[in-house]
Structures are given as C-alpha cells and as structure tokens.
Nucleic acid binder design. Structure first.
Lengths: 229, 229
DNA sequence: TTTGAATTCAAACACTTGTTTGAATTCTTC
DNA sequence: GAAGAATTCAAACAAGTGTTTGAATTCAAA
C-alpha cells in the first residue's frame, strides 16, 4: 500500500530533523509511524535511501507550503527583492509548524549527504536563479561576480536566522524571528541590502575605481601578494 | 601522562569535525591518536565529555591562531569593522589548515550539544560584544534593536561562507573564499554593510520618525518604478 | 471463490557501538 | 630501590544498530 510509504515519510521528517541521520533509529520512526520495522527496508532500499526520500519529501512539502513569489512585468525590482526575502525567511527561518522542514534542509546543507545534489537542483538553484535575476535588474552594469557576492550577502542574512538560532537563544534569550517577526526582518534585510546595492551602483557610475569615499576609511594595503594555493 | 590527553584531543578535532559526533567512533579516534581504546574513558568521563573537551580545545586553538584585533583609540570605526570581519572570516570560513576548527564550531552552532553554552560564553559573546561596540560608534542615535539587526546582518554574511560551503560548491563549483580570497570577501562585506549603515543613519537624521509600515507590502523607502514613462 | 502476487509482521541475525575489567606497566615519592 | 599511585593495555561485555528471514495476512484479478 502506498499509505505506509507516506506514513513513514511523514513520521521521518521531524525525527530526522531533530536528531540527525545517525542518531535516528529506524525503530523509532517505524514506531512513530505505526508501521512494522521491516517496512522501511521493504519500501525503501535501506536507511540511507529512506533518508534521502525523506529529505526530498520535506523539501517538496516546504516548496508547496511556501511557493516562490510570482511577479508581473511591472513589478519593481525592489518589491521583488522584498518578496523574495520574505519567501526565503518563511521557508527556512520561521517556526510555525511544520518547523522541521527548514531544520532538515539546513542539516543537509551543513553536512551534505547523498540527497544534497538533488536538494540543490530542486530547491537551491531555482531560488538562486531568481535572486540573481532580481539583482540583475537592480544592479545595472554590474559584473557577474558582483552579483554573486551580493547574492551571497543576502542569502547569508536570511539563512542566519535559521543557522544561528540556537546560538541566538543562548546569547540573547530569544531569536530575532520571535522578537521581530518575519515581516520586520524581511524589511530590514531588504532595505539593508538595497542601500548597499544602490551605493555600489552609484559608485560604479561615478568612477571606475571605488575609493570608498565618505567617512575616513583607511585600509592598510600590504602591497600585492598572491598566495592562494 | 598529559601527553595522551593532548594526542587524543588533537586527533579528535578533525574527525569530529568531518563526521560529526554520532558518526565518529572512539575506536577511530584512539587509533588515529595512537593510544589505547580505554584511554578515552579513562582521561575523559565518556564519549560526550570527550567531545565537549574536544570542542573547547578546538575553540581555544582557533582563538589562539586568529586572535581578536586590538585597536587604539584613534582607529576609525570603519577600519575596526573591516578588521573584525576579516578576523571573523579567518576564524570560521578559511580553508587553510587546520580548517576543521571552524567546521567543528559550526556543527556546535547548528546542532548544539552540552558544549554550546561554554562555546557561546567563551567564543561568541566576546565577538558579539566587540561588534556591537563598533556598531555603536558607527550608528549614532541608533536603538539597541537596530544595532542588533545590523549585527545579525553582518554575522550572517560572514558565517554563510562556512555554512553554505557545501551548497556553494554543488551550485557553482567552488566556494567564494576560494574564488575571491578572504581579503576581498572581507572588503565586500564591510563596504556592503557600511553602505547600509550610512544610509540608515542618514535617514535617522533627516526623519525623526521612520514611516512605520502598515499592512501593505512595501519596502521601507517607496521604490521608484524602473523604466521610462 | 480461487490464485498468485504484494504487503505486513514477529523474530532473529550479524555487526558495531561505548564502556568496563583486571592485570601489566610506568611513573612518582620517599 | 621499594611502595604505592597513576596509567596503559588487550580482552570481553552489554546494549543497540540496520537488515534479513520466512511465515502470515491482505489485496486484486480471473
């Protein structure tokens, strides 16, 4: 029956997310799912195959729950960025149930397993492409590398609200998501990034060589050395 | 002998960092260290106590290798931020050996164990305090919450170069650290953040009360529609 | 209803895990 | 150098792991 498969997958998500792959036992999951122990080996090849399927199942559920935003041609790029960031935060950082989606995907990101390649293909790459598209609109005359760096800055800001959750609680007693809410957080990240983008664009237009004008910003530059291995 | 302790701790770091706590066996570590299996239970209480000691050992080594920057009173805040970011990146993101330091600490951050509290106290809190101090200089008249959000944005950008490493490689074939180098990356993050800070400061000075967003999905500052009209 | 395949189930298997044991060895102190 | 503590060592232990087995049950088509 296909129902057993589904029950197993649904039960697996939260447990894998909380305990991690190694610390989770197939007995625990089968018991939680109300199925027999051997059902996992029967319906999936083995524990690892089962884990991969569970990750894919979680990612799919996450994408269904928080779909990518859709824009018409007239939507200004700034608004696109805001909705993108909001979607991103909702997908990974937010604690409303099922909260384990983001948790599980973050695990996959930090210590990738066999599921990582598919995860990147189905989940990361579309979002990355969408962000690069928005940045291309926002940053006229920018190089590909500049857009890449900017994308990293934006993604890093969003992801940190999931990755740094435990440390945030230990450090300040609560998460920023709980303190500010997704909306406020998304607005901060968006305006923060837009300001940086706009200044960089202005600099690119006025002069070739950005001298980091404004306040005194002196960087000791120890000549040229090339030591990357 | 104290040497056995040290050999175990040094051997434990890379293995714990690569495989994670559960997937690492004490046999593997004792063999790598060239000690007897029972030495771990003898010198440390059990595997978990051993792991906590290994994390602390790694954090200490990391802090010794890349100490916090020290500034005199005349150092401009912008320069402080750059050196802070550089230090941060060097501590967590860089691949020069021993690269496992950052890896292990990131694991502790993502899935905290008993070592997390001490890790935050000895490692995270000093850096956080230092960053908040710099931001206080950079953001006159800012509220504590604004500084907190800004700190999160900066830390998120730095940490992403460790956290997102595996996905970055899967997505683009190489890490940004490898492609740009720490210096360039630190300069990007610093100028990116400085631009956002300066614009926010300017806004704070011009308008006493920032327009609180209503229910409409709009960016802080109403975006200009692109294109000719 | 009959038949054969698909699925479930309890039990057992083969293996790895962290930990303990008690003797052997080394180190420290007088 | 001898006594006693500290440390190392090979071996064994007990518990838990993923997986397999083969019979029992359910399901679906003739």
């Amino acid at each position: 029956m296909d129902e057993t498969r589904l029950r197993l997958l649904n039960a697996a998500g939260p447990i894998f997310a909380e305990r991690g792959y190694r610390a989770t036992t197939v007995r625990e999951i089968s018991q939680e799912a109300g199925t027999n122990l051997a059902a996992i080996s029967y319906h999936f090849e083995d524990k690892e195959g089962f884990y991969v399927a569970a990750v894919k199942h979680a990612a799919q559920g996450c994408m269904d729950r928080v779909p990518l935003p859709q824009w018409d041609a007239e939507t200004p790029a700034e608004e696109k960025l805001l909705s993108f960031v909001t979607t991103f935060l909702n997908r990974v950082a937010v604690d409303h149930d099922p909260a384990w989606h983001g948790q599980l995907l973050m695990r996959e990101m930090v210590l990738p397993t066999r599921a990582c390649a598919e995860f990147v293909r189905d989940y990361v790459r579309p979002m990355h492409g969408m962000l690069i598209g928005v940045l291309t609109e926002l940053m006229p005359n920018s190089s590909e590398k500049e857009r890449w760096l900017t994308a990293l800055s934006i993604v890093g800001q969003c992801l940190h609200h999931r990755v740094g959750q435990a440390v945030m609680i230990e450090l300040t007693g609560e998460t920023a998501v709980a303190a500010f809410g997704v909306k406020k957080l998304a607005e901060h990240i968006t305006s923060f990034s837009l300001a940086a983008i706009q200044q960089a664009t202005k600099q690119r237009l006025t002069t070739k060589k950005p001298p980091t004008s404004g306040t005194t910003h002196r960087v000791d530059r120890p000549a040229r050395k090339r030591g990357s291995r």
